[in-house]
Design a protein around this nucleic acid. Structure first.
Length: 354
RNA sequence: GGAGAGGUGCCAGAGUGGUCGAAUGGGUCUCACUGCUAAUGAGUUGACCUGGGAAACCGGGUCCGAGGGUUCAAAUCCCUCCCUCUCCGCCA
């Protein structure tokens, strides 16, 4: 074997080594060992601990979103499948407006401290490597072979590489970035399991919040990102819980991750709608992002953190179930109405045609 | 990605080579009956293309997920693809 091949192989192997979990992350052997650290519902507000008392949901809320969607003409999965295949969604009418409103709502909510970015959707191999999405998860990414570009699985990918190979000034940290993008995931091997409706998709929209920090700023930033995501859920009035991911369930690149899961009354499932992670310097090393210490003049790697705030397809699903009325119409949460021409509800078919 | 089950009219659901554009039930519409509603009884009811007709209507063709094939003959058999459902695995 040639030395060059060996070198490439060695590099490939090294790139596949995952990050070291934080000492604070709970130790576990499967996702069952994730720890519910708190939860929230509009009825009782914030609650610590893992003993969740679900709110009472009425029968008219216990209808799965895919049925509500076709009933109201706001979700057309059948035609989406015709156009692009299964697991690609298509929103219509007020359903599309609602989906858009969610992004506007989130971007505005973060505009106090985050720079809004509209990054490219297709990225180079090196960009995918920086965040840890390659080489290990090659199978899960959509790739344009002819141009050697990948469709981004999350805005984390372009946003992390925004400062690739740069040396930042400590006084400019933390840097806060937010972006609204479509996300593309092949979901290789996921056919047939929990894939109904909008539960798992090849394409969905998401607003991401991301930060570059010094190592000492990281912990506070992790809390900030988490509480921003939580604030959105509270504003939308959705019941959710916060999971501290155990070492077995932690992503490849992450040192510590909190997942936010919304309760879907129509399916009885908790749906992951946000993942807020601290990567330490794992991604910064791969992307070569450093900062010069103001005090010592030393150059160090930054830390990266990010979180979804939030992933819309699943939020959309939980919203239409949660806010469905007995007459079949769906109330629009107060905070979204200004982004929806002040429309306060999606009318039931009977009402609109009467 | 693996294994299995399916895709038939507005809906549900039979049909596994000719008698099937297609049983049956529900719904629809019409009529009858009935203070109203409901219930009941009788009847009615697929889509698209096309010829004739002012129209009511009368005729021809195509369509049982899509596309090919076998056959004198296909909803029924074979092949490819798509979609749906269940279970397992996967989920950065």
């Amino acid at each position: 074997m040639k030395a060059g091949n060996l070198e490439a192989e060695r590099r490939d192997s090294l790139l596949k080594i995952p990050n070291m979990p934080s000492e604070d992350a709970p130790v576990g052997v499967s996702e069952a060992d994730n720890v519910v650290i708190r939860w929230w519902s509009p009825q009782v507000g914030p609650q610590n601990g893992s003993e969740i008392k679900l709110p009472e949901f009425a029968d008219h809320q216990k209808r799965p979103h895919w049925e509500i969607g076709s009933e109201l003409g706001i979700l057309d999965l059948e035609r989406a499948a015709k156009i692009s295949g299964s697991m690609f969604p298509m929103f219509r009418g007020l359903g599309a407006t609602l989906e858009r409103a969610l992004s506007y709502f989130a971007l505005d909510a973060h505009s106090d401290a985050f720079e809004e970015i509209k990054p490219p959707t297709f990225v180079r191999t090196a960009t995918m490597i920086s965040t840890g999405h390659l080489p290990k998860f090659e199978e899960d990414a959509y790739r344009l072979e002819r141009d050697d570009l990948y469709a981004i699985p999350t805005a984390e990918v372009p946003l992390t590489s925004l400062a690739k190979d740069e040396i930042l000034r400590e006084e400019d940290l933390p840097v806060r970035l937010t972006a609204y993008t479509s996300c593309f995931r092949r979901e290789a091997g996921s056919a047939g399991r929990d894939t109904r409706g909008l539960l798992r998709l090849h394409e969905f929209d998401k607003v991401e919040i991301l930060a570059y920090t010094t190592p000492s700023q990281a912990a506070a930033m992790h809390s900030e990102l988490l509480s921003r995501a939580e604030n959105l859920l509270q504003g939308l009035g959705l019941t959710y819980r916060v999971l501290d991911l155990c070492t077995a369930d932690l992503g490849n690149s992450s040192k510590r991750t909190f997942d936010l899961e919304c309760y879907s009354p129509g399916t009885g499932l908790w749906l992951e709608v946000s993942s807020v992670s601290w990567f330490g310097d794992y991604q910064a090393r791969r992307a070569n992002i450093r900062f010069r210490s103001a005090e010592t003049g030393q150059i160090e790697f930054i830390h990266t953190l990010n979180g979804s705030a939030l992933a819309w397809a699943r939020i959309w699903a939980v919203l239409v179930e949660t806010y469905r009325q007995s007459d079949g119409s769906v109330i629009i949460p107060e905070v979204l109405r200004r982004y929806m021409r002040d429309i306060d509800r999606i009318p039931s078919k009977q009402a609109s045609s009467a």
